[in-house]
Amino acid sequence: MPLAQFLKDELIKLDVSCDSRYDVFDLMYEEAFKRGYVSESFLPKIKEREETFPTGLNLDKYSIAIPHTDPECVFEQFIGVITLKEPVLFQLMDDKSKEVEVKVILMLGLNEPHSQLAILQKIMQIVQDEETYEKILAAKNCKEIHQLFNKLETA
């Protein structure tokens, strides 16, 4: 399944204001739950998971977070894309004692990831590429995000 097919316009939130990572989760859950993409337990689960096993990643020049949780909570798969006006703090995946400022969040709503290596590798490719990061951050609308993801597919 092509990467761009995981995108859903209602789960692309660009240049939004959130006070904390919890605000980001609330915002995404609200959209995903009312459309039946996730179960009610998705919200407490993703918060709990982020507390126990954070998903902040520190690249050399920027940081990104890839919150996700148990596959049982996800009915319809998605990749949520959030860009923030002002950064929020995420703890690092490999060191909880460190927090990083994050402006781009990729929320992964996946439920059969063992068969999705190619998709996950593409996501990691997005995470690792500074140019792609800058383009996501600069995107003004969903269409630009779709184009960006489509381009990665053929790259």
Binding site: F53, I66, H68, D70, P113, H114, Q116, L117, Q121
Partner: peptide, 14 residues
């Protein structure tokens, strides 16, 4: 291993 045993460990396994 990863937190949920789904996303990042799939990539690392490979």
């Amino acid at each position: 291993a990863c937190g949920a045993g789904i996303a990042t460990s799939t990539v690392v396994c490979n």
